[in-house]
Design a protein around this nucleic acid. Structure first.
Lengths: 128, 128
DNA sequence: CTCCAACCTGGAGCGCACTCCAGGTCAAGC
DNA sequence: GCTTGACCTGGAGTGCGCTCCAGGTTGGAG
């Protein structure tokens, strides 16, 4: 229950093999265990981190910031406040992002409604 | 009420001057009017298009697709169905995007809640 | 008429986040 | 032991959406 081949880790995390290697290379994922032959072995812990990275990535956090978070976690328990703050700050960004998305979605629906109030009317304000 | 200098168009649309020029260059914005000296003059119609582009961009539509939409609109009234379909299709993408964002936001809030149920507990599943 | 800030062009460069490649190694199944 | 598919490395390349630049032109204020 705690030793996954690269392909298995990729399957479970939804990241490509190249992305997993990339994340390790840039120091986002901490050094991953290896077999004597040098092949990666991912642990449940690594998988947990990947789930988090997916969450942060999907909500638009830049990699540099994720890396900062990961580094803080590696630095130990005394960085908990800073990590907490980092996530809270990110959450407010996400809230703003959600509001914008909702607003523009509403706008889009208006536009679509326009097409549904055709047929055979005059072109709309932006001729589109 | 219908002739804006580039800087004014930029201010009103929220796009940079470079972006406005870029949008014209790639054929997203139709050829913009010019003074005899060659300087751009944006119309209310152009501004309307920019509002739409902002909506589509903010909701994640790739430029290629926006360009397709704009081209269809230029092609005339008989493309209305296709434009309608394009927007409807995009709207479903946006809905999915919103669901994902909400889901990952909830996940993020859980993570934050974890930090709030400290202090001085054991590290969480992904040690973060 | 002069000045200078705003504008023009074509094209190069950038930042992000991967993605692909060549050339070689590892390890499980037969 | 051999085969073969999964894996390794460093580094180059990609796609997107701008952004910046040099070198020149325009046009309204004074």
């Amino acid at each position: 229950m705690s030793g996954y081949a690269p392909s298995e880790a990729a399957r479970r995390s939804g990241f490509s093999l190249d992305t997993l290697r990339y994340y390790e290379k840039i120091g986002l994922l901490a050094d991953v265990e290896r077999t004597t032959g040098g092949q990666r072995v991912f642990t449940d812990d690594d998988l947990g981190w990947l789930v988090l990275f997916r969450c942060l990535r999907d909500t638009g956090m830049p990699i540099a910031q994720m890396r900062r978070y990961a580094q803080l976690a590696r630095d130990g328990e005394h960085t908990a406040d800073e990590r907490h703050e980092l996530l809270r700050h990110h959450a407010t960004q996400v809230e703003e992002q959600m509001r914008l998305l909702q607003r523009q979605y509403d706008h889009l629906r208006d536009k679509i409604r326009f097409y549904e109030q055709l047929p055979a009317t005059a072109p709309d304000p932006e001729a589109g």
